[in-house]
Every structure is written in C-alpha cells, then in structure tokens.
C-alpha cells in the first residue's frame, strides 16, 4: 500500500474507521480510504459489499434513507463532513452524483441542465452555463439543435451524459458515479469513460462499478470491497479489503481475496 508510484495529490476525502448502519444492521465497517484530487478512484467488489453505500455517504445522499447512520470519520478537505454544523444540502452542491440508471428530469434538455443553477440561484448567463456544461459533457454537438426537446427522447448513453452535464452545471468539486454505465451499451460506455478521463482534469471522480475492465481502464486507484465472511452466518457486512494503484490491484494485489476477485475466481 505504501510504495505508490503515482504522486498522490491532496486528499479530498479521508475516511477513517468509517461505518454505515441501516437501522440496526451494519452495512459496512472499518473503512480507511483516502481519495485524491483530480484522480479517478474506482470502488469494485461483489454485490452487497457496501461500495455503493460508501459512495452515497460521500455526499450525504445516505441521509435520505431513513435509519441510515454513518460512524467513524469522513473528512472532506480536512473538515468533518458529518459534523453537527454541516448542512448536507451545501455538501451536495459541491459533490455531485450520477446514478446507475440515467435519471433525466421530465423536462427539455436545456431545462435539465439549467435546473441546478436555477434552483441554487447561480449568477451568470444561463445559456452560457448550459452550453458550457453540455460541451464539457461532450454532448453539445449532439443536442445543440434540439435543446428544447424532451430529454426522454435521447438515447440511454446521451441521457447519462446529460446527467453528467447536469452535475457539472452546478460547478462541483467532486463527481460521484454509481455504476454509471451498467445500463448502457459498450459504445456508450466507452464514450462515458472517455469523458471521465477528460473530466478528471477539473474534478475528482469516484466511481462504483461492477465492471472490472472499466475500473482497470479508467481508474488511477482502485478500492476492493468484499463481504466480511468472518462475522458469522447471516451477517452481511461489507469491508474494504485493499486500496492501491489500479495497476497493482489488477496485477499484483496484496490480498488473496483481491486476486481471486480480479482474476474471476469468485464474484
């Protein structure tokens, strides 16, 4: 874990001994994880290992689930993200999220992108904001002639890029992506991956993915989660097994469970 070849930037997030409960049941426990600026960090692992749970606790989307409770510490640029003075709404303005299934609003393409800036009362020319966000999301050329069309008329891949544009429009610091390509075909997936490589120049990206090749292709660092089997029958508690540079995770992981997973022996 120590001899990283990549020069690590600033830590955007630092998770220490972080855990998440849903009501009485523990979903994920003991996560220690740094996430570095302007990198793509991937979280991989089998279903139920808590990777999405960890992702959703990075912008306090877990607050929306009744009974969800985060333990341990989540620092965001050194600030305790779950401190009593922190307003989760303000946190979400800085840390955007793209979901598994594209979820455009039932509005025009333009209004989808403008919704965030309008709702947050952002200053500036709205046409410019929308155009800038759509260009950054590599969608402008596809849609510039039909900005007033309903977003539901777009293809799945375009919808997902619209959701990325929508997140970019509010000028975030971090973009979280929860299996953004799992509902897309391979060509659309490649476009999103290209886009992610482009976006990491300006943003810090954390992506949860079921697709190991995707993690290998795009991520600078990869965190492997799994279900902790030493907690006895019936319990399904996720844990972080290993976090390292992506190349190391896929070629020479330190933990045998990681090796089994990335070589396809299990999961």
């Amino acid at each position: 874990m120590e001899n990283n070849n990549k020069v690590a930037g600033n830590e955007v997030f630092s998770l220490s001994n972080m855990s998440v409960h849903y009501g009485e049941s523990l979903a994920v426990d003991g996560v220690n994880l740094p996430i570095y600026e302007n990198e793509i960090t991937a979280m991989i692992g089998p279903s139920g290992c808590g990777k999405s749970t960890v992702l959703r606790s990075l912008n306090r989307m877990n607050d929306l689930i009744p009974g969800a409770k985060v333990g341990g510490q989540v620092l965001y640029h050194g600030q305790d993200m779950y401190g009593p003075e922190v307003d989760p709404v303000q946190v979400r303005k800085l840390i955007g999220m793209v979901f598994q299934k594209p979820n455009p609003f039932p509005k025009s393409i333009y209004d989808n992108v403008a919704f965030g800036p309008q709702t947050l009362g952002m200053k500036g020319d709205m046409d410019e904001i929308v155009e800038g966000a759509l260009k950054k999301a590599a969608l402008w050329d596809d849609v510039k002639d039909r900005l007033k069309d309903n977003a539901f008329g777009m293809s799945g891949g375009q919808q997902q890029r619209l959701c990325i544009a929508r997140a970019i429009a509010v000028k975030p610091d971090v973009i979280l992506m929860d299996e953004p390509c799992s509902a897309l075909d391979p060509i659309s997936t490649f476009k999103i991956e290209d886009l992610m490589m482009e976006l990491k120049k300006d943003y810090t990206i954390v992506i949860v993915t079921h697709n190991m090749q995707q993690a290998a292709r795009v991520a600078d660092r990869t965190a492997f989660f799994t279900v902790d089997t030493e907690r006895g029958e019936g319990s399904r508690v996720g844990q972080l097994v290993e976090f390292d540079e992506t190349s190391k995770i896929f070629s020479n992981p330190a933990d045998s469970r990681t090796l089994d997973y990335v070589t396809g022996k299990f999961g």
Partner: peptide
Amino acid sequence: SLLDGAMALGATRLQAVRK
C-alpha cells in the same frame, strides 16, 4: 430517482418536491 437527482444537485427537499 427524480427526487434523488434534484437533491444530488444541491436542491433542498422542499425545492425538489415543489419543482
């Protein structure tokens, strides 16, 4: 997902519900 999408952009719950 509509409510989540709006709230992930930093809208308050009330804003997400109303708009």
